[in-house]
């Protein structure tokens, strides 16, 4: 990034609390409130709060989502951004395509043919790992060990593990996914949020 700015020029600044455009639905706010009772310290709600935000913001965490979580939990924006960017399942870098297909290429999956699945996906979808198809339908990623090595090679799509996967299966998986409207990251985030909530919270 090269930016020539005269020294002393005021820099663009972070939004003030009153400038935030809050997007959490009422039920999301209720969910966050319920989560606050699970811990003696509000800070612990950052991780589950980010899952809620990821769902509310369509499957990823743009800067506004992070600002909203920080605002609702009374933490600094930088701190929450630091937490969000640390974990790989929070999509902070870019909005993924409707369905994110994550291929494990670690150890057992590696020796059981995961890279052939990667090749097939790259060829079939016309994109490289980390990219999204032009129609915005699929993003493919390589991930670290999903710890389902007995079913190597394994994919994760939304909340589902798929394995052992063969190139033949990939076609059907893609076709089935095209029919699913809900983005997989939204479905995954929702599933994770629900798992936190007890019967009494709902």
């Amino acid at each position: 990034m090269s930016e020539t700015v005269a020294i002393g020029t005021p820099r663009p600044r972070a939004p003030r609390p009153e400038e935030l455009d809050l997007k959490f639905s009422e039920s999301a706010v209720a969910e966050l409130d319920a989560l606050k009772t699970h811990y003696p310290d509000l800070k612990s709600c950052i991780l589950p709060g980010l899952w809620i935000a990821q769902r509310e913001y369509g499957g990823w965490l743009p800067p506004e989502a992070i600002a909203e979580v920080a605002f609702r939990l009374n933490r600094s924006f930088a701190e929450v951004e630091g937490v969000a960017t640390f974990y790989t399942m929070y999509n902070t870098a870019h909005k993924p395509g409707r369905h994110m297909i994550e291929v494990c290429t670690c150890l057992s999956c590696h020796v059981c043919g995961a890279y052939r699945i990667v090749d097939y996906l790259e060829e079939k979808l016309g994109v490289k790992l980390g990219e999204t198809t032009p129609d915005g339908m699929f993003t493919i990623h390589e991930v670290e060990c999903l710890d389902a090595c007995d079913r190597a090679p394994v994919l994760q799509i939304g909340d589902q593990y798929v394995g052992p996967v063969t190139s033949e299966m990939v076609d059907k998986i893609l076709d089935d996914l095209r029919k699913v409207e809900t983005p997989s990251a939204v479905q995954l985030s929702d599933a994770v949020v629900k798992v936190h909530l007890r019967d009494g919270d709902k």
Partner: peptide, 20 residues
Amino acid sequence: YIHTGAGSYECGEESALMSS
């Protein structure tokens, strides 16, 4: 209570887990 991680191997280390 259930509390989930979000994709970090290091969080399996006990003190990092507590941090998380």
